[in-house]
């Protein structure tokens, strides 16, 4: 009974917020300025935008929300594109930027023209813009914190990403910080898996014979399935492997779960983060109080949500989530 009432209240509340939104931003126009569309993550991002922002426009929450992409990842073109969007009189511009600094001139002009600028993923440093950044450091730390809830301690194998890339350094630093705070864990081996299953499998297979018993594997995404294959090939017991939301990883996890109750978690960044930026822009236009700097929540898949995530992910793809206004509200309130 109580549960039903709670749901009822939640539905009512969401209706109310939606109603308010319709009242205040139905004449507002939001544009997406995107610098690149050449990989599957970006394609998924644009698809999500089309779906969520398109629906919002159709429902009258905003007047329109078209997406603009520059053909090549060029600063000058995106700057000119932003200026054209200013000229077209958009109320808000959502940006995935080609450069953190070199678009500041155009962004400042947009702010001066009274336009709300929200940057995400590729963020801009101009102070007047809103930023939705990815905290890879926290993502690495989260993995170790999850392990601490699952076991008393033990040896860890770390699979890193592509050497020399900022994201790899950040996630790894987070993992090491997590281990420092949880001294019951020890990293006994570290290999580079380049975020690819085949590379990870080879790297893990190469290092396994020299390692003691491994309690868990901390990863960066795109490498969990390869690690599992390497352990199986070596005839060693499968440790707890943290996954990274890829389809093949989730599929393997599901098989293991059905066969022997294998339990782990999976974490990565959803391409649908663009739709979060859309709602944040809408909220700002609506007069809501939004902090200048927000952090993207990770998309975490647990034992319970595995089936749902697997069902909605394309084979070969990455689990995605599109944000609703309520989700965005939650992110803003949570920060």
């Amino acid at each position: 009974m109580l549960k039903k009432m709670l749901i009822g209240t939640a539905v009512l509340a969401s209706c109310l917020t939606a109603q308010m939104a319709v009242a205040d931003t139905s004449d507002k126009r939001i544009a997406l300025s995107n610098n690149y569309a050449g990989n599957s993550w970006r394609q998924a991002m644009l698809d999500s935008w089309e779906k969520v922002a398109g629906a919002a426009a159709a429902d009258g929450v905003v007047a329109e929300a078209p997406a603009f992409t520059t053909a090549e990842n060029q600063v000058t073109e995106q700057a000119a594109q932003i200026q054209n969007l200013i000229l077209e009189g958009y109320d808000a511009i959502v940006i995935n930027a080609a450069s953190p600094d070199a678009l500041n001139g155009a962004v400042k002009q947009a702010c001066d023209a009274g336009i709300v600028v929200v940057s995400f993923d590729g963020i801009v440093t101009e102070p007047c813009a809103y930023r939705i950044a990815v905290d890879f450091h926290a993502m690495g730390k989260l993995e170790v914190e999850y392990l601490a809830t699952r076991m008393d301690g033990g040896n860890l194998l770390e699979i890193r990403g592509l050497a020399g890339v900022f994201v790899d350094d950040e996630i790894s630093a987070g993992i090491h910080e997590g281990v420092a705070e949880n001294p019951q864990f020890e990293i006994v081996g570290s290999v580079h898996g380049d975020w690819a299953q085949d590379v990870a499998q080879k790297a893990v297979a190469g290092v396994l014979p020299s390692l003691p018993e491994i309690a868990a594997v901390v990863t960066q995404g795109g490498d969990g399935y390869g690690a599992a294959q390497a352990f199986a090939a070596a005839g060693r017991p499968t440790p707890l492997i943290v996954m990274g939301n890829r389809y093949d990883e989730m599929l393997w996890w599901k098989e293991q779960k059905d066969a022997n109750g294998y339990e782990t978690m999976s974490v990565s960044i959803a391409p649908g983060v663009g739709t979060l930026a859309f709602w944040v822009a809408q909220m700002i236009l609506d007069g809501k109080d939004v902090p200048q700097d927000l952090t993207v929540p990770f998309l975490q898949i647990t034992q319970d949500t595995l089936e749902d995530s697997l069902a909605t992910t394309q084979p070969g793809g990455v689990a995605n989530v599109e944000y609703s206004l309520e989700d965005a509200q939650g992110v803003v309130d949570g920060s």
């Binding site: 000058t76 450069s99 600094d101 001139g105």
Partner: peptide, 16 residues
């Protein structure tokens, strides 16, 4: 160009 952008990038003018 930097007078407009206020910051630089090595690839800022590749298209030029």
């Amino acid at each position: 160009l930097i007078g407009l952008t206020s910051a630089a990038d090595a690839h800022i003018a590749d298209r030029y």
